[in-house]
Design a binder for these strands. Structure first.
Lengths: 284, 284
DNA sequence: GGGGGTCATACCGCGAGGGTATCGCCCGTG
DNA sequence: CACGGGCGATACCCTCGCGGTATGACCCCC
């Protein structure tokens, strides 16, 4: 009850987040694997300790107060920070250290071999494990599953990450070989108005399930069901039945190496330096 | 004992951080206000749960393992995230909402009145509380004591913050009126070689206590005990016995408005917009 | 007006966390 | 070399708080 008590247990945070997301004590309790009454009590106790009403219950429905909304947001990031701490600690305790790099299949602008070679030539270089993911690379760095990731700005969100720019690329439209625009030397975004979505990969095409992998997207393009605008470096790896045409006014994309800020690992610093150097050397 | 348990209570984190900082179970226990044996047990249990050795004890001295060092770092930021969540929640629950802006005395480039006026003219504007601090403004934003702060990049660390650039300034050297360089129209950094420290405010002058406030620094300058290199905007508010001389090759300083990333408060967004607009309008 | 659903309250049992006492160990020191 | 002091670990106990079950209060809907 001391008002100066400025901390809260992660269990309480997790309980509140569950209730705030479900807006239903029973479901939240089931999701947490506990009974409903203890959960009600825990939330009341949390409200008492914070001196703030978090939820408005009117016996039929549960809604968030302003304070509850901020605790949902902030509590989420706090919980993420805690489990990131746990994961990074576990990784740091492994007997044989290594670096985990998250990359996107075909999304490395063919820089990966040079980067790995440059780092491997560093004295004391650790083995590097590559893990591929299309959409989770940023999250993997943030939550400690990976030490670093290759990301595309501004398509991907870089908040909370430290970054090193590797390569600025213009973009190309990927079209089926027989498309009316496929023969053009250059396009503008306006030329693509009315073309079937998704213009941007990882958007949800109408009536289709989420695109999980670039092969699916390219297949859709080949079928004439989609048009993709992607960094020009993937032109080197297009399937035979699609073509890439430069889009003059598409915003340039930057390939960056991202890692968690606050990290001061010797190995990671060396890797970042090697990657920057490799990117610099392979620039025309 | 389930290895998939990916979380840790904040109490355990705080316990470990205390031990890791003190490197002494007895002192850490005293600092935490508990007895030593429960603390030993808690750390052992934490190590068991993480499956990682955090501390090396050789019956005389305690040292951190690699994993312990990362848990110290990461645990610190995780605890900070938790108490920031608590503070922001408490603030969001106040009955009469307001914005807290952290500024440095004399460090606003005289923009503050315009910014406040521009925001006050916004429909639905909240009252703005100004809190002054020379060195803690970044920390205040990070831990939820303030909603936003005026910071000087690159002098101050912006990691973990979202920022809006307000003003790029060149820098001036502040010298005693009778100084041999005081009459010059312009200096270079080389001219200041050998001048008494601190060149940069908030550095620690030899033999002096830490400078807590810019008035102290200006006093030291007047006494000929220090030379300061500061943004040119403070020239408008110099005491009579010191002068400001432009330093041609000093790196430019950027005045930024910073706020916690992940914040999506209506009021804060309006304030940022108003500040950016005010800064744009007052630019020559 | 009764039944189902939802959150709060009442009550209980157990286990985790904290306290005291003590051990084991090492290192000074006379 | 014996001894005392300092430190972390262990042993043991006790309390409090978390979680469980049963039930109440209230509202909505049929």
């Amino acid at each position: 009850m001391t008002p100066g008590d400025d901390t809260v247990e992660t269990r309480e945070l997790a309980y509140f987040v569950a209730v705030a997301e479900e807006l239903h004590f029973g479901r939240a309790a089931r999701r947490l694997g506990i009974a409903q009454p203890p959960l009600s009590r825990a939330i009341q106790q949390l409200e008492r300790r914070l001196g703030v009403r978090l939820l408005e219950r009117d016996h039929r429905t549960v809604t968030l107060t302003d304070a509850g909304a901020t605790l949902l947001r902030e509590g989420h990031t706090a919980l993420a920070a805690v489990s990131a701490a746990v994961r990074r600690t576990r990784r740091a305790g492994r007997s044989e250290p290594s670096l985990v790099l998250a990359a996107k299949p075909g999304g490395d602008a063919d820089l990966l071999p040079e980067i790995l070679a440059a780092y491997a030539a560093t004295p004391g270089a650790l083995p590097v494990d590559i893990v591929f993911s299309a959409r989770e690379r940023g999250a993997m760095v943030r939550d400690g599953r990976a030490d670093a990731a290759l990301l595309h700005a501004p398509r991907e969100d870089l908040t909370g990450l430290a970054v090193e720019e590797l390569l600025v690329e213009s973009q190309v439209a990927v079209l089926p070989r027989g498309h009316r625009l496929a023969g053009r030397a250059e396009l503008s975004m306006a030329d693509l108005d009315g073309e079937p979505l998704p213009r941007w990969p990882s958007a949800v095409p109408e009536g289709f399930s989420r695109i999980a992998e670039s092969g699916q997207l390219m297949h859709l393009v080949a079928l004439g069901r989609a048009v993709a605008v992607v960094p020009e470096s993937i032109r080197a790896n297009l399937r035979h039945d699609v073509v890439g045409v430069p889009v003059a006014d598409a915003p340039p994309t930057t390939l960056v190496l991202a890692w968690p800020q606050n990290t001061r690992s010797r190995a990671l610093a060396a890797f970042v330096r090697a990657a920057a150097e490799a990117a610099r050397l392979s620039r025309p």
